[in-house]
Amino acid sequence: MGVMRISHINIRVLDMEASLKHYVNVIGMKVVHTDAAGSVYLKCWDEWDKYSVVLTEADVAGIINVGYKVENNADLDEFKQRITDYGTAVEDIAEGALPFVGRALKFSIPSGHVMYLYADKEYVGTDVGTINPEPWPDGLVGAGVHWLDHALLMSEFDIDKGINRVEDNTKFMIDVLDFYLVEQILVGPEGDQQLATWLSVSNTPHDIAFVGGPINGLHHLAFFMDSWDDVLKAADVMGKNKVKIDVTPQRHGVTRGYTIYFFDPSGNRNETFGGLGYLAQRDRPVTTWTEDQIGSGIFYHTGVLNEAFTTVYT
């Protein structure tokens, strides 16, 4: 029983043609479907479900919704009850309303971000299959990322007004959806305000994360890569394709991951996240970063929080 992992993210793009060049040629995903409204569905080679990223053309950028996959359909009944008991409105979504997806629950987390839970999504298999598989398929394009790894959502944070949606979201994810806290940044006069949190529901250092900002939005969506070498090669691919890089290959203090922050052609921040960092466990003690060490927490080598981290988002 329970949530297993991030299963999709639906984002808005300003220019579909430019976006497809990015997610196909740079990220290395494949287009698997285009729906009647023109939204395009893409999949990474190491994912076995039908799709993970959905691009919808719009006149603004940012996130539309994010979906997490649960283990069994019966889990949806349990979660529906828990979400309702928490005082949050939840909607039943019929099978097929999300393409290739079974019955789903739709609700908003405290920041207002729309989230789906579902158990079934059409199985298509990875590009190497399940019988005596090769370690990776031939013909990988661009960075050739393995899978959609996590999303970091900007959540409204204003200490003076007593608003901290990072904290509210974190509590919701833990109390209602059984995520557990892995790392956090604590700030404020008393050092007790969660400015950012990283939560897991599996054994990866984060399946979702929240960071405080002036509004609710999208900080980034991240794709998994094996190694530091892969991250370096991904940066080469970005250089070749004139992708706007926000932060060149670097280690995160938080999660210990190998990272590149960069932007898609509509300004949605992407990350290639390499290495597992460590094996997150429910009984692993929570790591805390203090306000004076935020820079090292985010960008470990420079120890400097670039201006864009909390100010540039969609």
Binding site: L14, A61, K244, G267, T314
Partner: peptide, 25 residues
Amino acid sequence: GCHGGGCGVCKIQINDGAYETKKMS
């Protein structure tokens, strides 16, 4: 910022000259 027309931090007012634009948020 994002260099993609999405984040809005590079807002400017063009007072003189000719230009073309791409779609912006």
